[in-house]
Design a protein around this nucleic acid. Structure first.
Lengths: 208, 208, 208, 208
DNA sequence: AATGAATGAGGATTCATTCAT
DNA sequence: AATGAATGAATCCTCATTCAT
């Protein structure tokens, strides 16, 4: 019966995921350039060299992290997209509420911000995020609007632009919290924003 | 008054501004960490050492650049805020149009993106931008909405959230261009977005 | 006699030899510093860790390789030395021819070059090679010359230096090929060099 | 009048040469891989970073060093080639003597050995050395032999091979000292070797 | 006996900052 | 005031070596 702690364990299967997970945290906190691999290693509980067993370079690790982070978001999108049926008047509030809920706690806002920050230096990642996340969400919303227009529920107009009218304020709200924190008097309560904006964009803010 | 040719002091006072101006460009292009002071110096037409006559550290220079960039934005805000009078139905389209125009060409979107990207590492800058730009814009819009509510033009509701409903999509549109470029099928035409969104947020997208 | 398949001990005794053999190749190709043990292991068909069952350090393995490579050369020397009898006028051409033949194909030249290259960092190896190879060859030749002098075949003079006169050009020819390749217009044909030099050193190049 | 030692001096002109000079020493001592740039810097009396003001990479510095080392040799060749006139019987002893003298003290033997050692990893350098040093020497000697043949002084035969007969033993002698040191009983006295070999190659070692 | 995942010391390289000119 | 050569701390990455399996 040994209880001597081995200096390390072999975890060939689990390692890459553990490392990427730690990497996401550190990259999100410090950005690409600001991240020291030493810290990633520490956070992942491995030695510096171990990173290089699974990733060729820091950039590689960053890409892997960004891709993995994407998975989180895809997951969130799917959750939001589920039950995409009904009149637009019912759907928009529900979708925005769900989005508000999803964003509230998760790492998603921080990840989104990191992608914004680093997309300049990693245009290929920007493209992937565009195709996998942004385009997907906008396609969903655009289709929703177009179908509603076909049913006469929504007045004419470019559905892609209307999709932005629907989703834009929520994204801005999320980024606001991420960038300026919750202390600002303008920091929106995301749930309230979902409610207010649903009504605003559906019925208009003008009183009649 | 001597006629000795001063070798350097051609523009003793202009120097800092020239440097900061060059710095904005380079920081916007490469981010804080990605920026080499050599390049800033080159772009400003001075030697590396000269930077240190006016700024203590790279961070200092960055702060100065971010502050200066802010001025550009304040200017834009003022332009947009000018003629802030009339019914909300008239004002919103005009404001969004103007904003779309301002953003179309200028360095503003790139600057905004840089601020988003670096605000994590420079929270004090985030605060300044919050106070000087974001709060100002939102205050303006919030007041506009509140006054319209007082006049019975706009239905009740938290005017701060409604302000986000009005402005959010435009900001998202601008960031979209900045991050993903104009080639995406979802890249919004900013002018069209201004028009569409004005109607959407004022009258609602629901047909009646 | 069991038929349990031993997974590893196929050739318990052969292993070190196989490893050393692979090591010679890799060290010769890449030099000591340029050699990665991973590659040696791969080439030997074993795992990296296995090397350490037989050799304490990379240096150790290198020494073993250099020693083993020496054996090859001793063998070659013996072949050349065989039938060391007759007048010097008969022997020199035969010896040089044989040397030319030996060197033509084998790994020997590359090994010699490696020893030259690494002897600075491994003076002990230099000594071994000196004692086992160089001194042996030179002793042989020196004795040959001395005996011929005793018989009055060869004129007086330090036989050790004359031995260099006999052997030197062949070594230089071999190194030339090794270092500069065969494409150079000066790359000597080793067989022709053996013939020419035999005559030159025996009869002199001066016409009489 | 200050006598405070400045922490450093500006020596834009002198620096590269100083660095290369130090580099030659260190590379010759430790080989390419074994050389630490820290040591080169120390030896050159500059900081590590300074190396990179003048040379892009370690390889670059090595190439520069090898090229500079070449200059030394070219110089030596020219000295030896000077006064290349007279009968071959006069010339050969003189040339070999001079070569022996040149080699005795200088860094040349060590440099030659380094080139042998590293030419495998730097084939381009091998080529340069071939063209600039080896080919030049052999051309000189070959011409000398050919002209002597034309005058009937030297018997027929490929002059390029005879050039090797003349020069080879000296090179081997030099390398012997470099690789095995002067303690070996076989370590040739270079001057004596020059004398002995001159006679051997001119008149032959066979007594008549 | 054999494996190969894990380790971490070591070294090349970058670049903000300093300071002799 | 201006310069840019010089500095050296900081960090990525490699690879010989160890050791849990």
């Amino acid at each position: 019966m040994t209880d001597a702690k081995p200096r390390w364990n072999r975890r060939k299967e689990a390692r890459p995921a553990e490392i990427v997970d730690a990497a996401i945290d550190v990259f999100v906190e410090n950005g690409f350039a600001g991240t020291k691999l030493t810290e990633v290693a520490q956070r992942a509980g491995v030695a510096k060299g171990t990173l290089y067993l699974y990733f060729e370079t820091k950039e590689d690790l960053f890409r892997a992290a960004a891709r993995q982070a994407l998975a989180t978001n895809l997951d969130a999108i799917e959750k939001v997209a589920a039950g995409f049926d009904g009149t637009i008047t019912d759907l928009v509030p529900m979708l925005l509420k769900r989005a508000a809920g999803r964003m509230g706690d998760s790492r998603i806002p921080a990840i989104v911000r990191m992608v914004l920050a680093e997309s300049r230096a990693f245009p290929d990642l920007a493209r992937i995020w565009h195709d996998e996340v942004v385009a997907r969400v906008l396609t969903l919303l655009t289709r929703l609007v177009a179908e509603a227009q076909a049913r006469g529920e929504v007045r004419p107009g470019d559905p892609k632009l209307l999709a932005l009218s629907i989703a834009g304020p929520m994204l801005v709200g999320v980024l606001f919290h991420e960038v300026f924190g919750a202390e600002s008097p303008f920091a929106p309560d995301l749930d309230a924003l979902a409610t207010h904006h649903s009504e605003a964009v559906l019925q208009g803010i003008v009183d009649r």
